[in-house]
Nucleic acid binder design. Sequence first.
DNA 1: CAATAATCGAGACGGTACGTCACGTCTTCTT
DNA 2: AAGAAGACGTGACGTACCGTCTCGATTATTG
Lengths: 215, 215, 215, 215
Amino acid sequence: MAQSEQRRNLERNRNGGKRAPGRPRSEESRQAILRSTLKLLKETGFPQLSIEAIAADADVGKATVYRWWPTKAALVADAFSASADQELRFPNTGSVHKDMSLQMRQLIRVFRSQRGKVVAALLGGGQSDPELIAAFRERFLWPRRQQAYHTLQRGIDRGELPAGIDMDLTLDSLYGPIYMRFLIRHDELNESFADALCGLVLHGVEVSRSLQSAR
Amino acid sequence: MAQSEQRRNLERNRNGGKRAPGRPRSEESRQAILRSTLKLLKETGFPQLSIEAIAADADVGKATVYRWWPTKAALVADAFSASADQELRFPNTGSVHKDMSLQMRQLIRVFRSQRGKVVAALLGGGQSDPELIAAFRERFLWPRRQQAYHTLQRGIDRGELPAGIDMDLTLDSLYGPIYMRFLIRHDELNESFADALCGLVLHGVEVSRSLQSAR
Amino acid sequence: MAQSEQRRNLERNRNGGKRAPGRPRSEESRQAILRSTLKLLKETGFPQLSIEAIAADADVGKATVYRWWPTKAALVADAFSASADQELRFPNTGSVHKDMSLQMRQLIRVFRSQRGKVVAALLGGGQSDPELIAAFRERFLWPRRQQAYHTLQRGIDRGELPAGIDMDLTLDSLYGPIYMRFLIRHDELNESFADALCGLVLHGVEVSRSLQSAR
Amino acid sequence: MAQSEQRRNLERNRNGGKRAPGRPRSEESRQAILRSTLKLLKETGFPQLSIEAIAADADVGKATVYRWWPTKAALVADAFSASADQELRFPNTGSVHKDMSLQMRQLIRVFRSQRGKVVAALLGGGQSDPELIAAFRERFLWPRRQQAYHTLQRGIDRGELPAGIDMDLTLDSLYGPIYMRFLIRHDELNESFADALCGLVLHGVEVSRSLQSAR
DNA sequence: CAATAATCGAGACGGTACGTCACGTCTTCTT
DNA sequence: AAGAAGACGTGACGTACCGTCTCGATTATTG
């Protein structure tokens, strides 16, 4: 459930299931707005995206947009998370190496697809708008990181990884290079990069466990 | 030498030292513009930065800005690189671990300083402006990466690192997590992160040399 | 009714009294703009008049001006005609000579007043903008000329003037010298000029009726 | 000799025929500027005419224009009078009627030609620039009016016109309607208008001599 | 079934910044 | 010293969106 659509729904809940009086919010408009937002975001960057254009594209009054989303950032964050919910689940193959590299390959595939433009817009816009980057963290990064913790834990339980490792360091080492290549575009970001990265980092984790545990 | 100031200077060179006719460009204005750009960039983000405000702050006509920089991006890129030239050199302590972690600590220090806002603006803005991100690569990333290659090579020569490693993979593994934490801000980015990262990755490199050489 | 305000009103009429959708035009702004236009026109000439200044003086967004008037000329024409409607009616004294010279005196009085600056601006600007001069003709010249025709006709009916005279020639002979002195300022334009002119021309008309009817 | 080009020539005269030191003024540039001014004035109106464009068209530095003409008005006035010197002389046929109507026909012909655009620009621009209208009076109107006085005087001497007439009233009555039709364009301005006008006004003068002499 | 209430679309509003153009002045080298 | 070249600070241009507002119309709940 998107963050900024709560006003009247909250009232509804408080009133014990009763609807607020007046014309109810148009679900049709809401979806058209989110759809147009994603569409235009893929065509232009975040700064070029205008609420004027979104409203026009969605055949909706400008005020309807402003009624439900306080800023362009909130709208984009909503649109993004509405479209990001179902993807990028972690597999469970019985091997940490395999689980991680498979998921990382998925991520790279997403980054290279049309959807990547939206992520780039979010991360780019987020550099000047804390709300945007927070939305990315909370709706995209954290849910996946929770799953990643479990995946790593399974590896520890199976003895593939030493106990006591710094999971955040490990995961940032695995994903950081992907994000870096995605955002800076200084080198190719293809799926085999996931394998090489996975090999390098997970072997490093195994070896330097003593250092980690000493921290 | 900044990119967008070449027009008339090039002519000068071609003409064998002769100056172009007409009033020469005001070096004073040029520097005032770059100074104001950096100053305002630190106060607001890249999208909020307006050429109008830069010109006003620099006591300069708007047209003078547009005469020399085609876009806000080009201006910011110039301002950034004019201020980034001298820093972040690599040390040479006789140990790869030490050399790298020292430099990475410097980078983190920069990212956490006022200058970090400019980098974030550049990378953020760059997500919707290829010119900006290219400027970052060419004027910031590449020069340092050249030095990093040499640092790694010294490690190989000294036997600290195996020969035949994938330097780009290694360096992205070292720096990627820093950039990720800097841009996504999902976890603390302090200088000790550099040491942990360095330990993890360089040990990983040593162990997985066979994998790398097999590629 | 001013020319450039018709768009939405016309729709209203076509729709049988129904209003166009959307926020209706602000009558307050419209009048403030016209008022400021006249005010500034009296202070400076037509070329010096800037839409920027009008908008500022009227406490109005620049876009509001451009929304309703395509050019500065159209705006000035509207402002002029909004202020010119009620004046300079022709008297009916029972004597052509008296009627004409009284009205011509009024005209000279207007030309010598503050309002004269606006007329001069209109006629001056009109030399490079057909729209402006057309506005002057249609909203100022023609309405008065209609009345002048009737005044002359009354003179003919009463036998003061010969039938079959060229009314346009007559009226241009009466008013042309006034306009000429007003615009070229080569000689004094005072009210007694009206009497002298009237005497000369109307006597001329009486005498040269034969020439006119022979045309 | 144009008004604003006097600075150095005056010095020359004071110095007793000696030339000022330094590079002499380029006659070529001066003429190119005047030529381009007229050319562009015929293409666009006075307000649209830009010194920038004149300098470019004349292949001349902008400063050269500003060095010799203080304002656009002065330049246009100069250009106009440089081109108006030789025309519109009064004939001497032995008949006032004929002399006047021939000259008025000439004037109408000029007004309808390309040169008319320049006159319109001058009179139009002059409504907001006293310098311009003064230039028109002094370099165009007065010289011709002097000749017109003589023409009328010849008529009086020959007994065609009564003595003691108001020459300025007479001439304004003859020319005012032409200027009015030229500037307001409310009715056709063809050469036969000169004859009708001449007939009407000169007959009027003959009849109302008593009124005039009574003034 | 009316009254009330909040939504919807449309689009005008006062603003801010855009990128361009011409202004009149200046600084340089060349003639 | 005047020439051309052309950069300079200035300020208006007309445009695009901003976020807010005022309309009539629509769609629900409440009395």
